[in-house]
Structure formats: C-alpha cells, structure tokens
Amino acid sequence: MDKKIFFRALMLTLILVASMIIAIGFGSVEIETSLVIDEVAASLQGRQTNSSDAMIIFDIRLPRIIFATISGAILSLTGMLMQTVSQNYLADPYILGVSSGAGMGAVFCIITGVAQIFAPYGVYVGAFFGATLATIIVVRIAGTSNNPIKLVLIGMGISALFSAFTMLEIYGSKNEAQVRSAMFWLMGSFTGIQWAMIPVALTVLIALIIFVWLFRHELDLILLGREEARHLGLSTERMQQAVVLISSLAIAVTVSIAGIIGFIGLVIPHIARFISESRHGVLMWFTTLIGAFVMIWADVMARSIFKPEEVPIGILTACLGAPIFMQIINRQYKDS
C-alpha cells in the first residue's frame, strides 16, 4: 500500500470512529456529543451513572450503531466478492436476489414455527438456506456468461420469485404476530438490535475479512478473466464455490438480524475503487470502512428524518442506492 493510499485509509478509520460517537447522539431523544463522550469515558473507567441518557446510549444506541457498522462492512464486502466472481460491477446480494432468498428462508422459519425448534438460530439457518439456494440458482442460470445485464436480469427474476414466495408465506399465515414479525424482513430495520446479536455478526465479519485477505491474490486473478486465471493455475470454480458459501453465510446473518437492506453492496465497492485501487488487498479495507461509514449515517437518517418515527433502513438505502445503480448502468452503457 503506498503512502497516499495508507493516509486515506487512516483518515477513513478516524472519520469512522468519530462517526460512531457522533451518531450515538441522534434519534428520537437527542444527546449531545460531549455528554456521549463523558458517558463512554465514565463507562470505560468502570463508573456507572445510571442516568436515562446512559441507558439510551448503552442499551439502545451503542449496540445498534455497532451492528450498523458491522452490517455495512459485511454487505459491502459481500457485494465486492460477488462483483469479482461474476466479473460484473452491477452485482450485489440485493440485485442478484440473494437477500430475497435469505428473506424468504427467514420468513418461512418464522411462519412455520421452524425457528422455534432450532431457537435461537432457527432464523439464521432458514436465511442461510434461502440465500444459498438463490445464489446457486443465479450462478447456474447465468453460467459463464460475461454479459453483465444478463446476470442482473436473472437476479431480478430470482428476486421477484423469492419475494413472491415470501408474500405467499405471509398471506397464508393466520398468526398476526408472525405476520408483523415477518414484514420486518421485507423492509430492513435496526430497531431492537441487542448486544446479544453483536458476537454472531462480528464473527461473520471477521471470517469474511480473513477470507478476502487470504484469497486476495486469487480474487485479483479472477478479474483478469476466468480463462486467464485458469491459465495461471487457479481453479475459478472452486473459488466461486467458496465465495458463494461465505457470501450466503454473511448475507444470512445480516438478513436474519436486520432484514433486507439493498444497494449498499452495489454502491460501496464502486466508491472504494474510485478512491483506492482494484487490488483486493487494498480494496477490501476501503470497502469495509466506507460500507461501515455509510451504514452508520444511513441509520442516523432513518432515525432522524421523521422522528420520533423511524424509516426502515432498507427503504432508505433503496431510495439512495437505486438512482446510483441507474447512473452506473447509464454510464456503463451510454455508447451502446
């Protein structure tokens, strides 16, 4: 990593940490940043203030912001991986239908009661199977096609299909509480995030980072083209299978906890490439940091726009991401 890139990464890290602290203050109850810092400092020194602000900060806001940071990084890294293995910069878990697959699996487990049987991991398992199923279908149908639009259209088809199944599951349910719980997955939300959810998400993020770091050179090779990568001795099929597995796991965990959040995985790797470079050993850190940063502020907007009401984060990221997605297509295909 050259000095200029390293400096940018360092700046991003500092901005991210500052954002996490500042973001704590936003929401239906506003808390001044200085008070947030005081409370955090007191907590680090082992002093408990037992104020209502402290309760909001440590029991509600902090787990939520930490999860937003982790899920932003996970979704962005997964988007980067999918763009690499499909050699298609329009790919992302939401557009390819993987998130919808995970949503369908999660809702199926809630509606049928399977989630209770395998509690507390029933929803995760359902989401994982749904995500894996969607990814395998997309990969199988798209085959080795290098047409980016074909892959996107197949993804849209898969997404529509799984969304329809999800609706059918909800429509067929008689239990109002289950229906309300299931609807949550369709819109994406960080409401109700608890500390207990952080270890699972953090483990997945660490696994994802380790995976990308270990295979950074292999991922670079895939971007030369599948044929060239094979000529250099890389088994692109095995690499693709590994990416499908870890991406499905990562998406399953974020969808299980926060529902379907679109476009982060699409947009962030583009921004990261723009301010860093294409080598995965560098790109992965920028993707992680920017993804986390964007998700923190998207969540702040979700909490602040119509406060005291909250806008589901999935709706907000779709509103912000969809125009960028169209802009990418427009720019990429302006000559054809």
Partner: peptide
C-alpha cells in the same frame, strides 16, 4: 483479454508469477 479491473501495470505483470 477479458479483464474488467483497472489494475496498475506492475500488478498485472506480477500476476504472471502466481
């Protein structure tokens, strides 16, 4: 070539050593 990424020259040549 079906390369899609905007690598630097030295990165691409180094990939020959994979």
């Amino acid at each position: 070539s079906k390369m899609v990424a905007d690598f630097r020259v030295e990165d691409v040549v180094l990939m020959g050593r994979f």
